[in-house]
């Protein structure tokens, strides 16, 4: 048991250079376990939050399969695959940053945090190009939405206000509404994911500043748990994209 006075002395003597053991914990390992479980509880509710979107996407993909397949062809598989590549590499650099933090190699940790920010930024720049191209083609699901680009892209025939989808015909109005629904899913899901990437970049920047300061001051026993916890968050963001990419860009079958 650590008294309040002892804890104060500990802080005065070491600052945050040594992980501080909370009064309610027996050992630093127990405390780290509690951090990990708390972070997992947060990630699990994030999983369920995105899960709701995936569930509704699945229902409408099943219901309007032909319209969704036609709409998804306007997304660039090259951009999607490139972004998957970039995020997977950023997960690797994040894992290396966590490893360096555990081994108290603050300069390496700083370097890999910067790499992770770099790849995350490339992801956001790609997303910016993708979104602007959708804007340019009037595929943003608002009042000015038009299915013209979807029809043109898929070489669909429109006859008497009916769109020919090969196996069935739907009215242009229905086709417009259903492809618009696809783009609503696309923008909500990738938008929320992009927001998580942006938040990640900010937190990673804070960690990078801390790592650099630990490097300059040659801190021998810095607390690596913040880096490991942000690592968990970052890998989770990667996992969301691992599912978004095949479901939105590849769509499985034809």
């Amino acid at each position: 048991m650590v008294s309040v006075r002892e804890a104060e002395l500990h802080l005065i003597e070491h600052g945050r250079e040594v992980p501080h053991l909370g009064e309610q914990y027996e050992t630093i390992e127990q405390q780290n376990d509690a951090y990990t479980i708390g972070m997992w509880a947060f990630i699990v509710q994030e999983v369920l939050f995105f899960g709701g979107l995936f569930a509704s996407y699945a229902v409408y993909r099943f219901k309007y399969l032909y319209e969704f397949v036609a709409a998804h062809h306007t997304l660039s598989v090259v951009f999607g695959a490139l972004n998957t590549f970039v995020l997977l590499v950023s997960s690797y650099t994040m894992a290396r940053a966590v490893r360096a933090a555990m081994l108290q190699q603050h300069k390496t940790q700083f370097k890999y945090l910067l790499w992770t920010i770099f790849f995350a930024s490339i992801f956001m720049v790609n997303k910016y190009f993708e979104y602007s191209s959708k804007y340019h083609h009037q595929l943003i699901p608002n009042q000015s939405y038009s299915a013209e680009e979807v029809i043109h892209h898929n070489h669909l025939k429109v006859d008497n206000g009916m769109v020919d989808l090969g196996k069935r015909k739907v009215s242009l109005e229905e086709f417009t509404g259903r492809t618009k629904l696809f783009f609503s899913f696309y923008f909500i899901m990738t938008g929320l994911h992009g927001l998580h990437v942006l938040v990640g970049i900010i937190i990673l920047a804070i960690l990078a500043v801390r790592a650099y300061s630990d490097h300059i001051r040659r801190v021998p026993h810095a607390d690596y748990m913040p880096v490991e916890m942000v690592g968990l968050y970052w890998h989770f963001v990667d996992i969301v994209w691992i599912f978004l990419f095949p479901l939105l860009y590849l769509m499985g079958g034809q």
């Binding site: 399969l65 598989v77 997960s91 690797y92 994040m94 894992a95 690592g231 890998h235 990667d238 996992i239 691992i242 599912f243 990419f245 095949p246 479901l247 860009y249 590849l250 769509m251 499985g252 079958g253 034809q254």
Partner: peptide, 29 residues
């Protein structure tokens, strides 16, 4: 994704690979 598989098979393959990737990230990273 470019194989033109029937829809049920295509989505099964895509999701199996995605679950495998996610499991690897969860376990190792």
């Amino acid at each position: 994704g470019f194989l033109k598989l029937p829809d049920w098979l295509g989505i099964a393959v895509a999701l199996t690979i995605a679950v495998t990737k996610a499991t690897i990230v969860i376990m190792n990273f």
